[in-house]
Each structure stands twice: as structure tokens, then as C-alpha cells.
Amino acid sequence: MILIPCPHCGDRNSSEFTYAGEVHSRPSPGDARQGPWRDYLYGKDNPAGWTEERWFHGSGCGKYLRAERHTVTNEIRATRPEVGAGASSRTRP
């Protein structure tokens, strides 16, 4: 089971979290065309390598966080809070 270093709670089993998908920005309302919108809804880059994704710590602090995870090895090299992203980050030693 993947161990996720929650920026608020520390290392926790991934079973405490809900996977919330790759980080995609929402197309700006009003001028969204179908292509980019459908890509936002359903498109996944799904790289074999590093990816940035969101996890929701529902059985913990209740916060969304961002994680940089390697999809082949499941290594998580950094996580940071979703709100005020960039303010503080937690990196594995």
C-alpha cells in the first residue's frame, strides 16, 4: 500500500485517501470548446513516470493535497497542500 506523506498529518496509508486524479485546470467558463472540456473531464495523460495528482485525505485532515508520484514505482517525492499550494511542502528524506 502506498504511503502518502500528508503535509498536515504525516505518513499515512493511501487507504485513508481518495484519489482525485491528475491535476487538470478547469477551462475558463464561457469560451470552453468541446475538445478542451472533454479533455478536462476525461482526458488523462497517464504517463509512465512522474505525474502531479490530487489526493483527498478524507479519513484524516479532510484536506486536498498535491502529490508528485512516479506511476511506475509509486514513489512519492513530494506533497504539498492544495490550498495555498507552494506555501509549504513536505519532501521525503
Binding site: F56, G58, E82
Partner: peptide, 13 residues
Amino acid sequence: AHWIENWLQTTFP
């Protein structure tokens, strides 16, 4: 509740 948290935390912080 999760839906609301999602919007508030990820899109409208």
C-alpha cells in the same frame, strides 16, 4: 460534502 470541499479547496480557495 466531498464535492463542496473539492470546489472550495481546489478551485475557489
